[in-house]
Amino acid sequence: MEYRNVLTTCVYCGTGCGLYLEVLDGQVVGVLPAKTHPVSEGKLCIKGWNAHAFIHHQDRLTKPLIRGNGRLIEAGWDEALDLVAERLTAIKEKDGPDAIGVLSSAKATNEENYLLQKFTRAVLGTNNIDHCARL
């Protein structure tokens, strides 16, 4: 039997409110505000209070899926990445780099987003990168 709180930052917007994820026996079960946090001062908006909801959600993707015969079939990482590299290269050669667009997420870390835009601009050769919060 184990219950503890782990301090983290809310993934949803740019404010960066501090919150605690309540962990009961290894599962994240809820959220508590961080009362001494200099940014959030113990308050959270509705997204912050539900920031834990997606972690153990049944609809969350856990394996790569490849579409075949109109259905999504589970695949391995190597198979999926090989397919992506092959197809992106083919599209870049045939229609040019600007035929490709990249969509990122505010839930990803700054480092992951930096990597993605570097990949888009330096490797794919296009400026077409944006993120979900701009939709």
């Binding site: 219950y3 503890r4 301090l7 508590l32 961080a34 009362k35």
Partner: peptide
């Protein structure tokens, strides 16, 4: 913990 205070068992 973590520079703040939170409930703990």
């Amino acid at each position: 913990a973590w520079g703040g205070v939170a409930p703990h068992l």
